[in-house]
Design a protein around this nucleic acid. Sequence first.
RNA 1: UGCCCGGUGGUGUAGUGGUAGCACAAAGGACUUUGAAUCCUUUAACCCAGGUUCGAAUCCUGGCCGGGCAGCCA
Length: 569
Amino acid sequence: MDSVNQINDSVENSGESKSIDFVRDIVSEDRRTNDGDNQVITRFPPEPNGYMHIGHVKSATLNFGIASETNGTCNLRFDDTNPTKEDIEYTNAFEKDLKWLGLDWGDHKYFSSDYFDKLYEYALILIQKSKAYVCDLNQDEIRNYRGTLTQPGRESPYRDRPIEENIQLFEGMKAGRFEEGSRVLRAKIDMASGNLNMRDPVLYRILKSEHHRTRDKWCIYPTYDFAHGQSDSIEGVTHSICTLEFADHRPLYDWLLEALGIYHPKQIEFARLNLSHTVLSKRNLSRLVSDHHVDGWDDPRMPTVSGMRRRGYTPKALKDFCERIGVAKRDNTVELALLEHCVREDLNKSAKRVMGVLNPLRVVIENYPADQVEELNAVNNPEDPEMGSRKVPFSREIYIERDDFLEDPPKKFFRLTPGREVRLRYGYFITCTDVLKNPDGEIVELRCTYDPDTKGGHAPDGRKVKGTIHWVSVQHAINAQIRIYDNLFIDSKPDPEKDLSDTLNPNSLNVLTGCKVEPSVREATKEDMYQFERQGYFCVDSRDSIPEELVFNRTVSLRDSWGKKKKEM
RNA sequence: UGCCCGGUGGUGUAGUGGUAGCACAAAGGACUUUGAAUCCUUUAACCCAGGUUCGAAUCCUGGCCGGGCAGCCA
């Protein structure tokens, strides 16, 4: 939010009118034009029938961002007009996620259901004006009467009912005198319109199920089209920002407000976010959960806020991402790489460095005294001296990463090989003298010697080593389970029609056990972020980690130019 | 054969009549006690065709391509 303000400031100072996105252009143009009242009110209107995901974050940062940049307000409004789908569980989850993101609605928390009485009055007014009528057609009949994309519809036989009869019938609907599905209230617009939304759209339907807030007070509920615009109007929303698929509804949005003669907010549509290698539609996300392809809505592979949070993504990274992707009207698929870049950029500055060996290989340093332990000094974060340093215990037996040793190395392999000297990070130079194998020929242990003069990693004679590898003292190592995540989907643009099992990445989760981590992480608490040097960023899993068996999630790997090169070889 | 919205490097996004910019990605190099970070360099784009204009990514016309819409979902 701050950086956005900075951008605005610098723009104002330089006297330029550099645009940030077309929505903000419209808002500032409106502010310039409406002399007197420049108050901006936006709203973030989730339907509480699913969990917040990265697509919601784009919308939320847009709405809350515009409000904060203009000293306006952004209302959190739960769009709860369909009791059969919505639940309190989801409203709580949304609030939790928004708070975690640092998006603050103050005391502007509303529900569409707060306006059910008012909305009912509005409906009566429409009937009164002969702009709405009760229709007895059933669902199939309404569909048939609507016509098709290329053919006009036919008018309902109930379209010209007298006003009085409509009022009585509508009151009857409210009183529960009619069966669910037997009647609806419809707007009287134009059955021949090229825009199907204008072919006498349904305004109210009978739904005899309990609403999570209004309980059994109502058995008729407004549709989205009737609730949304009027709720915007009631709240004095100036800019009602929604996604592209609602553009077709704007004529209806405008028509209703005009017909009622009430305050008329402006609807603006932008393109929703698509992210590569994942899905963002509510339907597909819940399919992943219900079919057990993931372990719940907060599975760290999920693009949900709770999943990303558990994975170790930070609010700052998420908001930075939303700023970078921009806001426009063309369909788009943003590469996951950009999100990962934002995460790395934040964590590079803030995460404490630590050494952890994912796939341990035992190394015995033969000329190091068996009973000796040294405390070596290690920097906590080279990007931030304020974070200080720590002591790391060193002893005769250590673990190194299996990938850091190769008996028969390719060119440009800088790590340990037989006879070669490398540096142990913050430790000594060691040279590999022997390779021990089991009967199957697998390497089980390395024998090395160290140079006592290279403590801390410097050679007094000035000789250089090409490689520096990380390590953990065997007797001091903490055991950990580490979960390595990869893209949920193989395809960058998963086809929702395809069978999920054909397009899901079978290796999206790789659980490593027996990992060895330096003792300083014993103090790790939930959601603490670490960089395991040369590996990536990791956080303690908030659900499964216990002090006796730490569980880490790999948030994102470090960039790995060697790994890339290796793949090509 | 209806209505609406869009097409700028691989991806995302600026540019609104005057040298097509930025970020991510990719490639190369420098530096390096993280093959990280940092720094430098490079590759790479206006859907097509006409028109208006001294000059068009931008304005006009016609195509082409993509997306959305036929819930009593939002």
